[in-house]
Every structure is written in C-alpha cells, then in structure tokens.
Amino acid sequence: MKTSARFTVVLTRPCLVGALGVIALVVGPASANKDPVTPQQLKAYEDAFMEQVRIGDLLFHGDAALAKKMNVVLTTTGMACAMCHPFASDTHPQAFPKYQVSMNKFATLRDMINWCIEKPNQGEKIDSDSDAMKALEAYIYWSNTGSVLVPGKY
C-alpha cells in the first residue's frame, strides 16, 4: 500500500513524467520476465539467436568479407573451418569441456576454435568473448542440435 501511495504521488507531478519514462525503461525488461511470453517475443528471441547462427555459418564457411568487417583473421591458407567440418561435423561441441590431446590441456570449445584458427588455418587467435567467437560457437552448437551431451569424452 505504501508503495502504491508513493507511485500515485509521482504520477500526480507533471514535472516527473520524464523520470517515469526512465523508470519504465528500467523496469520494463524485468517485468517482462514475469509475464507469459508472447509469440512476438519468442520470435524476437529466436531471431536474435538465428542471426548469430547465420553470422557464424558464414564465418565458418570462409566468408572473407564478413571476417574483414568483424576485424578477424580466421585463416591465411585458404582453409575454412567447414573444409574439415562440413555441417560442423566432427567438432563435437557436446564433448567439451574436456582434456584436449592436441593442446595438452583441459579445454573449452572456444579454446578449440582458437586452436583450429591458429594451427590448421594459420589465422590469428580471436578474443574468446568476441562477437566472432560467440557467432562461431552459436553456429557449431546449433548445427549439432540433438546430439547427446557427453562432456569429457575423448
């Protein structure tokens, strides 16, 4: 009751209408989580994900123009990820994290992506939180949808 009373007071002061807008902006996304999801929201969430999958797909298949735009050098040999991993096969994202023999260390999928960029592709290692890395990861996971999680498997 106390909160409502204060809110009413705020609403009655025209000079604070601008502040209300700010509050709505801050509270809006939080309260959206409390409401049943709408088809429009679902589509927006899926679109946000699929856009990353699309970007990852292009990078994975050697789209040089996009790599340049994203300021990454994923290869210098003409090799692209998909040349050894069609459909992102044999990437086995479901097996990470694991001890990765080729790196001689406990590794994540992002470590492995960077290893492939640096060794077979002879490109430049990318930041593990970069947009390009997230997109590559999104594509690899999406492409392996339905594979059973087996973390640690050789």
Binding site: M50, V53, R54, D57, L58, H61, A82, F87, A88, S89, D90, H92, Q94, A95, W142, S143, N144, T145, G146, S147, V148, V150, K153, Y154
Partner: peptide, 20 residues
C-alpha cells in the same frame, strides 16, 4: 572405437546461410 570419429555419435543440421 576411440580411434574413430564414428564412436562419437552426432546429429547434424544442414547449413542455412547460403539459403538466405
């Protein structure tokens, strides 16, 4: 079996970016 990539079952989807 561990010598083979086939020992790691995988379910794969075809790519999409070249259909857009």
């Amino acid at each position: 079996p561990p010598d083979s990539s086939l020992s790691q079952p995988e379910i794969l989807r075809p790519r999409i970016a070249d259909q857009i």
